[in-house]
C-alpha cells in the first residue's frame, strides 16, 4: 500500500468497557436495521458480524490467577494494507482504497460474487440480501470530510481512536505496548490493536495472512493466464513461419 499519511484506528481492549456505543453509532450512521436476536447465555450479541452489523464487541471470559478476566474486543474490518478482499475481487471499483487508506466498497459496482468473503484473513466481509458486500468502511463518507468514524466518535474511553496511523502506532508504543498488532502484518493493518497478551487470546491469529491459494493464484496463475495465451499465440506464429501449414498436395509427393 502506498498511500501516504495513512489513517487508522487504534483499538485498545484495555480501555474498552464493552458498552457497545460503537455498535449502535455505526448502525445509526450507516442506517442499518436492528435484527431479531435471542440471549444465548451471554452478554455478547449479535453472535457474529452480519450485513447489518459492521462492528461489534466480542466478550471473552477467561479464568485469571485471581478470579476471572473479561475482555472486550472490537471486531471489524482491519483495512489491511495488503487486502485479501481487494486482491480477489473481480469487479473494478467494488472494493477500493480511499486516500485515507480505508478499504471502502461501492455496492453498485459489487457484482455479488462473494469471493471477498474468502479472501479475507479475518472473516470480515458479509453480503446482504442482494448478495452485495457489507462491512466496515471506516466511515469513508465521514473521514473524507474530516469527521471521526462513528465508532471512534462515540467511544467514551478512547478504546477506539482514529488518526494518523504512524502517530497511533507511536501512541500505543508509548503506552507500553511493545508490539502493536497489525503494525507490519499485511503491509500494515488499518485497524491496529494494542493487545496486552498474545493475539490469540483476543481471537486473532498470531500471523494473519491472505489464504495461500489466493496468493498462489495472484502470483502464478494470474500471470500464467496471459503468458500462456501469449505464448501459444507466439508459438503458433513461429511455427507457421518455421514449418508452415500442412498441405494436402504434399501428401502425394510424400507418397
Amino acid at each position: 500500500m502506498t498511500t501516504t499519511n495513512r489513517k487508522a484506528l487504534l483499538i485498545s481492549p484495555e480501555l474498552c468497557i464493552g458498552c457497545r456505543g460503537c455498535q449502535t453509532a455505526c448502525k445509526a450512521w450507516n442506517q442499518l436495521p436492528g435484527t431479531k436476536t435471542v440471549n444465548r447465555g451471554t452478554v455478547e450479541n449479535p453472535p457474529d458480524l452480519t450485513p447489518q452489523l459492521y462492528n461489534r464487541i466480542r466478550y471473552v471470559e477467561m479464568p485469571s490467577e485471581t478470579s476471572v478476566r473479561w475482555l472486550f474486543v472490537n471486531q471489524r474490518c482491519m483495512h489491511c494494507g495488503d487486502a485479501g478482499c481487494m486482491k480477489i475481487c473481480p469487479a473494478p471499483g467494488a472494493l477500493y482504497r480511499t486516500k485515507e487508506g480505508a478499504v471502502a466498497f461501492d455496492k453498485d459496482k459489487c457484482i455479488g460474487c462473494k469471493l471477498c468473503v474468502e479472501g479475507c484473513p479475518f472473516d470480515v466481509p458479509r453480503y446482504d440480501e442482494k448478495g452485495k458486500i457489507a462491512k466496515c468502511h471506516l466511515c469513508f463518507d465521514r473521514i473524507a470530510y474530516g469527521l471521526l468514524p462513528a465508532c471512534a466518535k462515540t467511544c467514551p474511553t478512547g478504546a477506539i481512536r482514529y488518526g494518523e496511523r504512524d502517530a497511533l502506532v507511536e501512541m500505543a508504543k508509548k503506552a507500553g505496548y511493545q508490539k502493536v498488532y497489525g503494525e507490519m502484518d499485511l503491509e500494515g493493518l488499518g485497524a491496529i490493536y494494542a493487545f496486552r497478551d498474545a493475539p490469540k487470546i483476543y481471537g486473532y491469529a498470531e500471523k494473519p495472512g491472505i489464504p495461500e491459494s489466493v496468493v498462489f493464484w495472484h502470483k502464478v496463475l494470474k500471470p500464467l493466464s496471459y503468458i500462456g495465451l501469449g505464448g501459444v499465440v507466439a508459438a503458433s506464429l513461429i511455427h507457421y513461419v518455421a514449418f508452415g501449414p500442412k498441405k494436402d498436395e504434399e501428401v502425394k509427393k510424400d507418397e
Binding site: Q23, T24, K27, A28, G34, T35, N39, V43, N45
Partner: peptide, 13 residues
C-alpha cells in the same frame, strides 16, 4: 422500542 438496543440485549436474563 429501539431495535438497535434490543438486538444487543433482547431478553431477560
Amino acid at each position: 422500542h429501539q431495535p438497535w438496543q434490543l438486538e444487543m440485549q433482547p431478553q431477560m436474563f
